[in-house]
């Protein structure tokens, strides 16, 4: 799939999404769902960038999200930084942590990288709850309850009025998506593909695995952390409960549905998953059961996700045909 087509799909998707408040603006619940769709779409896209394109099994995306959310909240609560700036600072903090995590990971392979990044996830909740966490202002086990909302040009984006916040999030999501598309289209993207297919070959060509991997870690954790900061200022409250297994699995499902390395599949996956998750809410305890079964069926039936399916249905060819091709 070439860049133009990706941009076209993105434009159509986000254009349609931008129109949704006309129909659903009256319902806070649906607006909230849409905002969460946009937020998760950024996280899922970043995950896809690092896992699908760069081929790094990073399992730390939720952790970077939470790090960003906490960092932004702490900056604005403790140092009085305006939230609109603190979200960027939060992105920087997440990026710094990302690079720190990346350094040991660069020498590792596959499941080891997954483990090290997941270790960050596992260790984050105890850290935030510990006395060290309390010392930097995480609020310990209670979390933070008074995170100020984002203000821009004298306007305050309250979660009680979701429509303005929705458009703000949409703008952020579009910017993030453009960055991701640019990365995929640029020589970075080509380098990643070469690295993923054959690291030795790429090295021989002079592609520095180390540099690219560090950069992709920094970039994805920056974007994820920034959107995490956004989330914190939107909801106004934070706790370590985000680090349960539920959210992690939900994000994974977004990638399953969207297809790994099938950007902008992850964006579609985010919208699909959040919507399905909400639609299944009335069945209560059967919801995760159905989600689990769905993952099984989708992975088996649609190894390249919905985007892969659409592509093969319309025979769009391009990279998808290669990704879906048989290995041996």
């Amino acid at each position: 799939m070439d860049g133009k087509r990706r941009i076209l799909i993105m434009a159509v998707v986000f254009g349609l999404v931008a129109l949704l408040p006309i129909f659903f603006g009256g319902s806070k619940v649906i607006m909230h769902i849409l905002i969460m769709c946009l937020i998760w779409s950024v996280v899922a896209s970043c995950w896809d960038l690092i896992m699908g394109f760069a081929g790094i099994f990073s399992f730390g995306q939720v952790a970077f999200f939470v790090i960003g959310a906490y960092a932004s909240a702490i900056f604005s609560l403790r140092l009085g930084v305006p939230p609109i700036i603190s979200t960027f600072l939060a992105g920087a903090v997440a990026a710094a942590v990302g690079v720190l995590v990346a350094l040991p990971c660069l020498r590792l392979k596959g499941a080891y990288v997954a483990l090290v990044t997941f270790a960050v996830h596992m260790i984050l909740a105890p850290f935030l709850k510990s006395n060290m966490g309390r010392a930097i202002g995480t609020g310990g086990a209670q979390g933070l309850l008074t995170i100020p909302p984002i203000s821009l040009f004298g306007y305050t984006f309250q979660n009680a009025e979701p429509i303005p916040f929705f458009y703000l999030t949409l703008v952020v999501a579009v910017i993030c998506s453009l960055i991701i598309i640019l990365v995929i289209m640029s020589h970075w993207g080509t380098a990643f593909l070469t690295l993923k297919d054959s690291e030795d070959f790429a090295r021989a060509l002079g592609v520095s695995a180390l540099r690219y991997k560090l950069m992709v870690f920094a970039l994805t954790s920056f974007l994820t952390g920034m959107i995490g900061g956004f989330y914190g200022h939107y909801v106004g409250m934070l706790s370590t409960r985000m680090l349960g297994i539920d959210l992690f699995v939900t994000l994974m499902i977004m990638l399953v549905i969207g297809g790994v390395g099938q950007y902008p599949g992850a964006v579609l996956g985010a919208f699909f998953t959040v919507t399905i998750n909400e639609m299944l809410a009335p069945v209560g305890s059967y919801r995760p059961l159905i989600l689990g079964a769905m993952v099984l069926i989708l992975v088996l039936a649609l190894p390249d996700g919905v985007v892969g399916l659409i592509r093969s249905l319309f025979n769009l060819g391009g990279r998808g045909a290669r990704a879906g091709g048989r290995m041996k």
Binding site: M51, F57, A111, V260, L296
Partner: peptide, 18 residues
């Protein structure tokens, strides 16, 4: 499939949930 290792992880994650 290519990148089947990720797919196996996802699949087994779904199996765990189920």
């Amino acid at each position: 499939w290519s990148s089947w290792e990720v797919k196996v992880m996802m699949l087994t994650l779904g199996l765990a949930l189920l």
